[in-house]
Design a binder for these strands. Structure first.
Length: 593
RNA sequence: GGUCUCGUAGCUCAGUUGGAUAGAGCAACAGAUUUCUAAUCUGUAGGUCCAGGGUUCGAAUCCCUGCGGGAUCACCA
């Protein structure tokens, strides 16, 4: 249903017939609003073959197309631009076919398996705004890739081991007095996070004390008793010490319970969850392979490295002298294990752009080891969420907590809905659901409408808008159409399935044109791994429909039966496309608000 | 310092592989509701696309230089 390609095809045929232009690099784009026409051909690339000036070339092309392509109703030439108009009946046919297409917008199966890894939290503190962007992006990208016809596996690699976990555990042992989520009523991830903070506080105090007694700061950082305890605990963990493992399992369990609640509220989910405690030994075999191939080398102390200086990078450690592996080693091993299991044709890692270097190296090493599928790895390198005063810092207490943020958005939506009287006549349960959809929708859209790669700003002092380019705006459009349809059925109006043969006006053509772009929009968003493209599309759709809604009465007296049928049919298609697009963003739509 | 990245309206952001006179939202101002939901719609105002050079029919977009912000350059993950 890509109308642009249809028109491009006309132009190709014209170019070939007139100038013998085979495979000419022709460009067709949507005609800008200030000109008459639907699609525009830029004729400059044809001039070498036509041996005419731009105007004459455009004129000749236009005449040929108008004469040979029945769908084209007219054309005009401005400078080197040929504006092509398509007839109303053409658009009516397009609308008809959209209307009857099941799952309109989605592509047929490509039979490709793709994986999306996202979230990947540490288990020592609750999720914050940065994780929110990660989770929303990951989930949405997965949905979009699915709509583009791929078999998608959403995976989460939980960082559940390491010194940072031990810090929370030590602090809990020291200061916890047996506190549990049950005993205190604190959500598990927050409770563990509190002890991580407690560790940091005690650690700093000990460092200060040591420095005061004459020790250098660097030494104090290593020698502080609480840090030594944490390091000792990590060794015990690695040795499989029962007591340490039990506590580790218990506290991680609290965190997972907490995460589950947050994930559920965010509306994200996974097909498979990996735990680093189970994958951190992967990759050691790969080190042997690399050594055998001469890609890696061993130093005198026994550590293993790869020299990437010829590629403009540095030397990278893969195995410590004591034989333990590092982050890169496990990631290599995990990638290989996943490829063996899934043979993915696209493996997207949703990870912040602070790890660009890591992924550049990861892909390069796999390439050097001879794994061609290294090319299938895509690092969706999203930008940080910054506050007006800069990056979020847990030490300075400027972290925006995910649970708090979501709760406050829902509350804000509730207050605003009450003020506007939108909740009148709804049950408590219904009001809550409406507020939830609006509040979370506003938050999700606010984050997803921005190009993932760009750093974005969040100002906690200014609440997220509910008007303009926002989810509530789009949801409102949808709710109004639902309301319209409720009214239709309550009035007992019976509609014919067939679209009437009417003449579409400009606004209607604009709507159909936009509807026709939906499949290409999904494809573009999938290719670019960018939910922002879908968000922009949904907004544009809602905006144009709202204008249409204002100018075109539907159920009022005096509207002809055929107009009414067309307008309702158009409204229905718009509503379903908006619903579909928003679902790709993970945003739920209320049918009243 | 090396590498990467960003710089568009007061603010937050769009701007497809280079295409016509640079686009939205918010904020500001002026309007629209006897009507299918005004969380809507219409209009006004707001720009040295960081600066300078280059490439060409044409540059916010590509190249170079400079300025400014951010990330990264761990035997942390």
């Amino acid at each position: 249903m890509n109308v642009e390609n249809i028109v491009l095809d006309y132009c190709r045929r014209a170019g070939e017939a007139l100038y013998g232009a085979q495979n000419a690099d022709l460009q067709v784009s949507k005609t800008r609003r200030e000109f008459v026409g639907d699609y525009t051909l830029v004729t400059f690339p044809l001039l070498k073959l036509s041996h005419k000036n731009p105007e004459a070339t455009a004129q000749q092309m236009g005449e040929w197309i108008a004469a040979n392509c029945p769908a084209v109703s007219g054309f005009n030439v401005i400078k080197g631009f040929l504006n092509i108009e398509l007839g109303g009946s053409f658009w009516l046919d397009i609308l008809r076919s959209i209307q009857t297409t099941k799952n309109y917008g989605t592509s047929p199966s490509t039979r490709r398996t793709v994986m999306v890894e996202y979230s990947s939290p540490n288990t020592n503190k609750p999720l914050h705004l940065g994780h929110v962007r990660n989770n929303l992006l990951g989930y949405s990208v997965a949905r979009i890739l699915e709509a583009a016809g791929n078999k998608v596996f959403k995976v989460n690699l939980v960082n559940d081991r390491g010194i940072h976990i031990c810090k929370s555990m030590i602090a809990w042992q020291r200061y916890g007095n047996g506190e549990t989520p049950l005993s205190s009523g604190i959500k598990g991830d927050h409770l563990v996070g509190n002890y991580y903070v407690a560790f940091d506080k005690a650690y700093k105090a000990e460092i200060a004390e040591l420095v005061a007694s004459g020790m250098s700061e660097d030494e104090a950082k290593k020698e502080a008793p609480i840090m030594r305890e944490a390091s000792a605990m990590l060794l015990k963990w690695e040795a499989g010490d029962k007591e340490v493992r039990d506590l580790w399992r218990t506290m991680n369990g609290w965190v997972y319970d907490g995460f589950d609640v947050t994930y559920k509220e965010m509306g994200v989910c996974f097909d498979k969850i990996y735990y680093e405690s189970e994958t951190y030994l992967l990759g050691k075999k790969l080190v042997e392979v690399g050594l055998a191939k001469g890609v890696f080398y061993r130093r005198d102390d026994g550590s293993v490295w790869i020299d990437l200086r010829e590629d403009g990078l540095d030397e990278k450690l893969l195995l410590r002298a004591d034989g333990t592996s590092v982050y890169m080693t496990q990631d290599l091993g995990t990638a290989l294990a996943r490829y063996s299991e899934f043979e993915f044709s696209d493996m997207t890692y949703v990870v912040g752009n602070e790890q660009n270097y890591h992924f550049t190296v990861l892909k390069l090493i796999l390439k050097k080891l001879g794994y061609q599928w290294s090319d299938a790895i895509y690092h969706l390198s999203y930008g940080m969420v910054e506050l007006p005063e800069g990056k979020m810092k847990s030490r300075e207490g400027t972290v925006v907590d995910a649970d708090d943020l979501m709760a406050s958005m829902v509350e804000e939506a509730r207050v605003m809905s009450l003020e506007l009287g939108k909740l009148d006549g709804l049950s408590q349960q219904e009001s809550f659901q409406v507020s939830r959809k609006i509040g979370l929708g506003a938050l999700k859209y606010f984050i997803l409408k921005v190009d993932p790669r760009k750093t974005m700003l969040f100002n906690p002092a200014e609440s997220i808008d509910f008007n303009g380019n926002t989810a509530p705006f789009i949801q409102y459009t949808y709710a109004r159409i639902c309301s319209l349809e409720r009214k239709v059925s309550s009035l007992g109006i019976v509609l014919c399935d067939e679209l009437p043969t009417v003449v579409l006006d400009d606004k209607e053509i604009e709507l159909v044109k936009l509807l026709a772009e939906y499949p290409a929009t999904i494809s573009a968003a999938a290719a670019d791994h960018s939910p922002a493209i879908v968000a922009a599309y949904a907004y544009q759709m809602a905006k144009v429909y709202n204008q249409y809604y204002h100018e075109h009465p539907i159920l009022r007296d005096g509207v002809s039966e055929s107009d009414r049928a067309l307008r309702l049919a158009l409204s229905r298609v718009v509503a379903s496309v908006i619903l579909s697009a928003m679902s790709l963003l993970g945003i739920e739509m209320p049918d009243r608000m």
